[in-house]
Amino acid sequence: MSKHRHFIIHKPWGMISQFVNPAKRKKKLLGDLYNFPDKTMAIGRLDVASEGLLLLTTDGKVSAEIRSQKYEKEYYVQVDGIITKEAVEKLKTGVEIGFNGKKYTTKPGKAFLINDPKFPLRSQKIRDERHGPTSWVSIIIREGKFRQVRKMTAAVGFPTLRLIRVRIGEIKLDNLEVSEVKEVTTLM
């Protein structure tokens, strides 16, 4: 049996977190970044408009382990407006969002205000100061419902403008360049 392989990538904005494109959209796929081995899978996903840390593996057991609620996932989120302390507190305790056509209250997590992390500009400009101020918040969760972080910030009145995953468990985005792929011996 062959040895499993593991990868850490900095997914750019506008890329699909998949190797196949069922909708045949004109978007880049993970396979456009690197010649990954057969049976490589993304561990969780980041939607097309999200950026940051994405883990890949050829080991389904590792994928299931990391997708479980054992590991924290940290996101830096740029929101529309100057987020209030009250909104940050709500993000910590859990907010009601829609999921699979039903109302769902997110599990408690961590959230705090951060300074602009000065990430490189993305390929599509978000907007400029003429449209009003923005602010940044770190959100740390252990679950990962569909578009959860975006729904959470909208639920507290501060829609997400930019979302960057910076950490999964102990693995950090650190200084990985946008679109960079790094092969590692283990993920957890």
Results as ranks from 00 to 15, higher is better:
residue 188 M to D: 11
residue 173 L to V: 02
residue 186 T to N: 12
residue 137 V to S: 02
residue 88 V to M: 03
residue 82 I to L: 15
residue 177 E to A: 15
residue 94 G to N: 07
residue 119 F to T: 03
residue 102 K to M: 12
residue 139 I to Y: 01
residue 45 R to M: 03
residue 113 L to E: 13
residue 178 V to Y: 08
residue 9 I to G: 00
residue 38 D to H: 10
residue 106 T to P: 02
residue 70 K to P: 02
residue 145 K to Y: 06
residue 19 F to P: 03
residue 78 Q to F: 09
residue 32 D to I: 10
residue 30 L to Q: 06
residue 113 L to G: 04
residue 123 S to Y: 12
residue 167 R to M: 01
residue 50 S to V: 01
residue 28 K to S: 12
residue 140 I to N: 03
residue 102 K to I: 09
residue 14 G to R: 06
residue 70 K to C: 08
residue 32 D to E: 11
residue 111 A to L: 07
residue 173 L to F: 01
residue 93 T to N: 15
residue 44 G to V: 00
residue 83 I to W: 05
residue 14 G to A: 08
residue 109 G to N: 06
residue 48 V to L: 15
residue 104 Y to I: 03
residue 21 N to I: 01
residue 77 V to R: 03
residue 162 R to W: 06
residue 33 L to P: 00
residue 170 E to G: 11
residue 75 Y to G: 04
residue 146 F to M: 11
residue 49 A to D: 15
residue 93 T to M: 13
residue 44 G to W: 02
residue 88 V to E: 04
residue 13 W to H: 15
residue 132 G to D: 07
residue 168 I to F: 07
residue 157 G to I: 05
residue 13 W to N: 12
residue 127 R to W: 09
residue 169 G to F: 04
residue 108 P to E: 08
residue 50 S to A: 15
residue 54 L to A: 06
residue 16 I to N: 02
residue 16 I to T: 10
residue 178 V to H: 06
residue 149 V to W: 05
residue 139 I to C: 03
residue 173 L to H: 05
residue 100 N to K: 15
residue 130 R to A: 14
residue 144 G to K: 05
residue 110 K to H: 13
residue 34 Y to S: 08
residue 126 I to R: 07
residue 73 K to Y: 00
residue 100 N to Y: 11
residue 17 S to E: 01
residue 150 R to D: 07
residue 11 K to I: 00
residue 141 I to C: 09
residue 9 I to D: 02
residue 74 E to T: 12
residue 109 G to S: 08
residue 116 D to R: 10
residue 57 T to S: 11
residue 61 K to L: 12
residue 71 Y to C: 00
residue 43 I to K: 00
residue 40 T to N: 07
residue 132 G to T: 07
residue 26 K to Q: 13
residue 52 G to W: 05
residue 174 D to Y: 09
residue 3 K to H: 12
residue 75 Y to C: 03
residue 98 G to E: 15
residue 87 A to Q: 02
residue 80 D to M: 13
residue 71 Y to Q: 02
residue 83 I to Q: 02
residue 168 I to T: 14
residue 104 Y to F: 14
residue 62 V to R: 01
residue 144 G to S: 07
residue 114 I to P: 00
residue 27 K to G: 00
residue 110 K to M: 14
residue 26 K to V: 04
residue 56 L to G: 00
residue 73 K to P: 02
residue 160 T to W: 01
residue 98 G to C: 10
residue 33 L to G: 06
residue 16 I to M: 12
residue 41 M to N: 12
residue 18 Q to C: 06
residue 188 M to E: 11
residue 121 L to N: 14
residue 120 P to C: 03
residue 129 E to M: 12
residue 69 Q to E: 15
residue 143 E to V: 09
residue 18 Q to M: 09
